[in-house]
Amino acid sequence: MAQVIDRNLHIRRIDTYVDPLVPRERAIVTHGHADHARPGHKKVLATPDTIAIMQTRYGPDCAGSFQAVPFGEPITIDEVTITLFPAGHILGSAQVLIEQDGQRVVVTGDYKRLPDTTAQPFELVKCNLLVTEATFGLPVFQHPHPSQEIARLLKSLNDHSDRAHVIGAYALGKAQRVIALLREAGFDAPIYLHGAMIRLCDLYIERGIGLGELRHATEASKAEMAGAVVIAPPSALKDRWSRRLPDPVLAMASGWMSVKQRARQRGVELPLVISDHVDWPELTQTVTETEAETIWVTHGREEALVYHCEQQGLKAEPLNIQGYEDEAEEQ
């Protein structure tokens, strides 16, 4: 099976890489996060949403040419068939199915299975070789339903109505998801954005994701921000930027926030366990449901997942791909 794809995610027969970290002739990009989507490739194949995200972040000419491929539409090149399936991670995020000589390989990219109205929902794809992430690949990671976490945020807003609630969230994907979750929970007040959030929120709105009324945090008065929700990149939480907010409650939306020790280290008072990656139960469920005989683990807590797969009688190995250390969660 190693002839279909190698451990650098190189599809040999068509000389194409999945999520290459250095500029390549041909690349398939699973989603728009910077550790998977790099500028400078000659030809990029991706979903229309991912291409729009890349062009917004890196400029319209960040690749020599783009081939937009909708979900579920197979493309055959030199007897290799490529099909993209939704990964549920962020808007446009895809898993890549590669079929050659009767073998099926799925590269998941980053993915999650809990509901998210800002991303096309994950679809399970059966395969022989599953190339999966394992960002939260330890059994201590059991993510709660996001609506529970939003309920805790709303309670805190209610209990501390004089304090701004600044939520650290990565600018692509997490920010828009938190806003959409708040809207679903009936929160209809304006939400204030750090400058780094604005471009990508506008892009989501353009592509049909409703986010309600958004305002620029820098243009709002201090009084206006009392009891308001502000979304900022995690790096801005402890920065001078958040000091001008009225007595802010520092919150953070991330799968890592289940570990209290970790929340404490970052000075987070209100940890919101909202993750765009599968947790341990979903990860092991996916491994089983794909019916793959071989599992490769690209990045994350590889050791535990490889061990688990071996216990189940599957072949498994870590790829230790450097550079996928998930910016969305680590920042």
Binding site: L138, V140, V259, Q261, R301, A304, Y307, H308, Q311
Partner: peptide, 21 residues
Amino acid sequence: DPHLFALSYDYVGDLGETIAL
């Protein structure tokens, strides 16, 4: 599983919190 517990404990660093999670 004891091995998965050991890996988790290494990662979390606090016995009580590892058990709770």
